[in-house]
């Protein structure tokens, strides 16, 4: 096993720290179906880690394991050097892990602002009595969090839709608001499930820029699933490749690109 404190420097000169999260021999079964089979990999402080693979490879299941939505049948999740006990998704969120969803999962009846304020739920401390009176801590807290959320609104350039119910927004903007909601939590680790699915080239470029900026400005560690290989190879520092629930490759984009198993999985192999 690798040294936990080991770090490395990326091609563009960013310093990557030690291990933040480590998945050890994760297996996930649904009855007889094995979605993930004995997969181990790590995510380092400050890196952009991609998980790729053909449809049904178990990528989203992996993300669900990390965010606590699925409990692995076997294996351990280590976070910041200690084994994570079994916890509920909202407890995982409190540890500083935020995520977006493959199919947008915004709160459609609420405004952009309210969606993002909900993202800061884990940081809200005022009691129900204070909130009922809208007095003291409740009011102060609301303004403070609003300020933090406004910074993210500026960052994502969505000032104009602040008070629009998100159900009325076009798809690309909804994706952006969802990223904003995850960022509002100021996570240590941000999980992005196909952040660019269904976008056109310009929207993809915008989203890529936001992902890089988030990593750069906020120092957020990012794990993402994406199908667009160009995007993945450009953005990510290291890539895990999955196929049929198994890990078939792990390394820098260049290493992965030249890995024969990966090429076979994507292009298919003739069996004659």
């Amino acid at each position: 096993m690798k040294d936990m404190s080991e770090g490395y420097t990326t091609a563009d000169g960013r310093k990557i720290g030690g291990t933040m999260m480590e998945m050890k021999n994760i297996t996930l079964r649904f009855g007889g179906v094995v979605a993930i089979k004995d997969i181990s990999f790590d995510i380092r402080e400050g890196e952009i880690r991609a998980i790729i693979g053909p449809n049904g490879a178990g990528k989203s299941s992996m993300l669900n394991v990390i965010s606590g939505f699925y409990i692995p049948s076997e294996g351990e999740v280590w976070f910041h050097g200690s084994k994570r006990p079994q916890m509920k998704p909202y407890q995982v969120a409190q540890q500083g892990i935020a995520r977006t969803f493959q199919n947008i999962a915004l709160f459609k009846g609420m405004s952009t602002l309210d969606n993002m304020m909900t993202g800061r739920m884990t940081r809200m401390k005022s009691s129900m009595a204070q909130q009922a009176m809208w007095w003291g801590k409740a009011q102060k807290e609301e303004s403070e969090h609003r300020e933090a959320v406004e910074k993210i609104i500026d960052f994502l350039e969505i000032q104009a839709i602040r008070k629009t119910p998100v159900g009325r927004l076009p798809y690309g903007l909804q994706k952006r608001v969802e990223l904003g909601r995850a960022l509002a939590a100021e996570p240590k680790l941000l999980l992005l499930d196909e952040p660019m699915a269904g976008m056109n080239v310009e929207e993809k470029e915008d989203m890529s820029r936001f992902i890089l900026d988030v990593n750069d400005e906020f120092g957020t560690t990012i794990a993402l699933i994406e199908h667009d290989m160009g995007v993945v190879m450009d953005l990510s520092d290291r890539v895990v490749v999955m196929d049929y629930g198994k890990k078939i490759g792990d390394g820098t984009p260049d290493e992965v690109r030249n890995n024969q198993d990966v090429i076979d999985a994507y292009l298919g192999v003739s069996h004659d």
Binding site: K88, Y90, A93, T118
Partner: peptide, 9 residues
């Protein structure tokens, strides 16, 4: 489900 994942108990 999304609510629970972003930290609503």
């Amino acid at each position: 489900i999304a609510a629970e994942i972003i930290g609503v108990n």
